[in-house]
């Protein structure tokens, strides 16, 4: 009797997981099918929605990514071209892109961006796999914004304006300002802390270190969670980052037990989930003081948009959306 109960429990678990997995897989593909079938409707709705998002940047940062991920792209930047939406089969895959065989038999090369960014999302692409690509084409190159897999998993690479989520700042403001390179962070400024996680939320982790408790901001929830590394209370982690005023900004988190890493910032301390704000445009005169669109539309959210010499002091992370 006990044996039968245990075996039944195991079977129910596996069957249940299979059904849930199937349901999870079907759900996003249904959503994307609907989006493909009704582009006109979405086109009419999105600008308004985007405007609303810009007013409430922090609360709706995820919504913007969702919009970029599940709706056809409405507008693009000059250098990335017009929106391009196709499905096809991957025939060749390299670190920076993939060759797709389209339904008409032709082949195109679709650029995915830096491997460190898209591979960190733990959405494995494979040759012979059918994918659905939302992106941009400028006649010569095709840049993917989202890549949807048959199992519902999705790579998110650019926002709805074509701005790469790994860099950002490709324009979209009113007046072009001159970009200034970001200051390099001195190697001496990087410090490492080790500790045990005493609490974890979607955006912060509290560590118990030898120097006492320490709270670490993780930034954009979807970005670090997409890297497939779970953080739990009791995990031993080490964090690498720099101090900015009294705030510790984390670039990399390593789980001591497993060696798994979460990458959050690049060596210039630029958030990987947001743009650097280069080319951000001030709304005033070029070179003058003014509010900026800090490389608008990254998924970053809240911070300083000090991109071009328009000195944009937005309410997003550096490179995130500045206020208009």
């Amino acid at each position: 009797m006990a044996q039968k109960t245990v075996i039944s429990l195991l079977v129910v678990t596996i069957v249940g997981a299979f059904i849930i997995g199937l349901y999870d897989a079907v759900r996003p593909s249904l959503a994307s099918d609907a989006a493909v079938e009704e582009p006109a409707q979405v086109a009419a709705v999105l600008p308004t929605a985007t405007a609303e998002i810009l007013v409430e940047p922090l609360a709706t940062a995820d919504a913007l990514v969702d919009a970029a991920a599940t709706t056809p792209l409405q507008q693009s930047l000059d250098n990335v071209g017009d929106t391009w939406t196709r499905d096809g089969v991957i025939t060749v895959l390299d670190d920076f892109g993939m060759t797709l065989e389209l339904s008409d038999g032709s082949s195109v090369y679709v650029e995915l961006g830096p491997p460190s960014f898209w591979q960190a999302q733990n959405v494995p692409l494979m040759v012979d796999e059918s994918v659905f690509v939302n992106g941009f084409s400028n006649g010569e190159q095709i840049h993917a914004a989202t890549v949807l897999l048959p199992d519902g998993a999705q790579l998110t690479l650019r926002n709805e304006t074509g701005q790469p989520l790994w860099s950002g700042g490709t324009g979209g403001g009113n007046v072009q300002g001159q970009s200034e390179p970001l200051t390099q962070v001195s190697p001496e400024d990087w410090v490492t802390f080790s500790g045990i996680i005493s609490s974890v939320s979607n955006s912060t982790v509290t560590l118990k270190t030898s120097d006492g408790p320490m709270t670490v901001q993780l930034g954009q929830q979807r970005f670090w969670q997409d890297q497939g590394v779970t953080l739990a209370v009791g995990d031993e982690i080490s964090v690498l980052g720099i101090w900015q005023s009294s705030q510790f900004q984390v670039a990399e988190i390593t789980k001591t037990q497993t060696g798994e890493r979460i990458m959050l910032r690049d060596p210039n301390n630029r958030p990987l989930w947001a743009g650097p704000g280069q080319n951000a445009q001030g709304s005033g005169n070029s070179g003058g003081q003014g509010q900026s669109n800090g490389g608008q539309g990254s998924s970053g959210g809240n911070g300083q948009g000090n991109g071009g010499n328009g000195q944009g002091n937005g309410n997003g992370y550096r490179g995130g959306r500045g206020s208009n």
Partner: peptide, 13 residues
């Protein structure tokens, strides 16, 4: 390691 990512396949759990 390479082919099956259960948390990604079962995101609602």
């Amino acid at each position: 390691e390479y082919f099956v990512d259960l948390p990604a396949l079962l995101p609602s759990l």
